[in-house]
Nucleic acid binder design. Structure first.
Lengths: 347, 347
DNA sequence: TTGAAAGCGCTAACAA
DNA sequence: TTGTTAGCGCTTTCAA
């Protein structure tokens, strides 16, 4: 075992095994032909010493790095851990490793995180969203690294894009709500400037309502704190301020769940008197007393597809053409949206 | 801008600015004295070209890497994203960057993740838990990298340890439950082999009950699926199988929340007839109709402390002595634990 | 199947 | 304040 404080090098393994550095390197990477006997000797020596290769040197020499950068706004929102899970699942089958960077929804932080990531010359970069600072966009384009922008397909991508159209998601929800003859619609959500995708859903939503001749009757925004609690509070606020609301659309399931719990406690007839819908199809909804209507944002699937694109970019000799994959989130009506089943048409 | 596919090097910036490579390097790292005029020239050229330094080469040459490895079992359990948030908060003040690896609660995976991490010669390694394979332990010890084991202080650490004693947490909860004159205690939790900390809480819990002459009357375990839903189901199962239970201790708040919702729906008198408690003090509890009793596991604080230890190890010339920080989680009785306030003594 | 030499892009150390 | 030289620990390439 290594008792000195100096990290071991190939040379140490070479000396311990009596095999040249070059051959040791070949054995440890499973490259080229090495006789079984030499192999054994090397492997034994490496194990005995507790040798851990120096990827930094390896990467510099080979110009290859088995890292894939993943840039996301936050860990606090379960959406992103779920995307990461999808990415990990796929990368686990390869020797690629995800490296996560957090932007806290701030473009300046995103820019510096992307810069840091690119400075490691990763095999690929997966970035949440399609809105970036001009400088970030330039870096990404100039880097030569395959870039996959995820979550959102509304906008111009740099390279590859995998996600859903949040505008469309909002619009489709609006359509069903209108079909169900709800007319006094409220909206509760995050403060928009932070969250482009929530904003786009809202835009799509108002547009969809407009087509049915409806305007959003009231709205309420929050930031920070327990989403479940905020959902309660906003629901109460909305209903007190605009008592004739017959629907509330929430920008995510957590606040929607809070709203649902509130309504049930208040004995409000859901969905007869008041309809509710959220967004994301989070697992949590399974355990609530009633199923909140929602829409699956395909988080894990987006992660998996993004990872697959990176892999294909690395393996393809002819540069992979740009992908743009738009997944179709489905409305899950649950028990809080449908009061006129006869009006449920899929178009 | 860089239009060729070859990534830019210092040499490119040097040529574009007419300044030697070495001086360019100094400017870009803010090291040593450089005249304002040269600085400007270099910075302008670097920006104009869109130069992104190659940290791989830099790290190899300087033997310094601004990466801190963080090895956690999962992203799906909000506990770990929260720890990460604490780590990020602190590292954000420095030029250190967290790099996350996921083990899926598997020791073999943990071993390979640690190996990969160490191969990048990070400035520090933060690892969840104190149980690792013998090989992993050897690697960590031999690496020369400062290691901080987090979450759990029950067991032998390699180097630095920050966490809480889950045995003690379980014992303390048992004490209060006994004080409150609950006698027929049920337990619902994760399948243990996966989760050492849940197991230790359970061990401490049974020990604490034993001191009061009580045995766990019934228990139920789950794995996978929606925790909220599982909490409901397990609660129903327990209460049907052992109708005289007067308390259920849950190994985490999500299943506890599910249980609470179930009990409220069933019109069960909580905490009079049946007491409930969870573990973790997750934010979600704020939004429930009643406050579940719980215990704060100090997740963010653990993350912050761990990051601080790494930082201190890097800056200290005399090798930092080993830390062992045991935080004290506090019982938050909420509305589901106290039915004899007069018995509420803190010892 | 094995080995020797060169060099990846940067920084430490020293010289001017 | 600036420049020169050597080399970090590997892998690539080529020769044996």
């Amino acid at each position: 075992m290594n008792d000195s404080r100096r990290p071991l090098t190939l040379r140490d393994v070479s000396e311990a095994s009596g095999v040249s550095e070059m051959t040791v390197s070949r054995v440890l990477r499973n490259r080229g032909d090495v006789s079984a006997k030499t192999r054994e000797k090397v492997l034994a020596a490496a194990k005995e010493l507790g040798y851990v290769p120096n990827r930094i040197a390896g990467a510099l020499a080979s110009n290859r790095v088995n890292l894939v950068g993943v840039v996301i706004p936050s860990m606090a929102n379960m959406v992103f851990p779920e995307v990461l899970t999808g990415i990990s699942e796929v990368l686990d089958e390869t020797d690629l490793q995800p490296v996560v960077g957090i932007t806290n929804y701030r473009q300046d932080k995103e820019e510096s995180v992307i810069f840091e990531m690119l400075s490691w010359r990763p095999s690929g970069l997966i970035v949440a969203g399609v809105e970036h600072s001009e400088a970030a966009r330039r870096m990404l384009r100039a880097s030569g690294v395959p870039v996959v922008e995820i979550m959102d397909t509304d906008g111009l991508g740099i390279n590859h894009v995998v996600g859903i159209s949040h505008r469309r998601a909002g619009r489709e929800m609006a359509q069903i709500i209108a079909q169900q003859k709800y007319r006094r619609i409220g909206f509760a959500g995050t403060k928009m400037p932070l969250d482009h995708r929530a904003r786009k859903r809202f835009e799509g939503f108002t547009l969809g309502l407009a087509k049915a001749g409806i305007e959003v009757a009231d709205q309420e925004f929050y930031s920070g704190g327990s989403a479940l609690l905020k959902g309660r509070e906003m629901t109460q606020t909305l209903l007190e301020r605009t008592p004739d609301l017959d629907f509330i659309y929430y920008s995510n399931d957590m606040i929607g769940a809070g709203g649902l719990l509130y309504c049930l406690e208040q004995g409000i007839d859901v969905p007869g008197k008041l309809g509710l819908a959220g967004f994301n199809a989070v697992e949590l909804l399974d355990g609530l007393p009633r199923r909140l209507a929602t829409m699956d944002a395909c988080r894990a699937e987006i992660g998996r597809k993004a990872a697959e694109i990176v892999i294909s970019c690395i393996s393809d000799t002819p540069p992979t053409e740009n992908h743009k994959i738009e997944l179709s989130p489905k409305v899950q009506p649950g028990d809080t949206l449908i009061r006129h089943p006869e009006n449920l048409k899929t178009d």
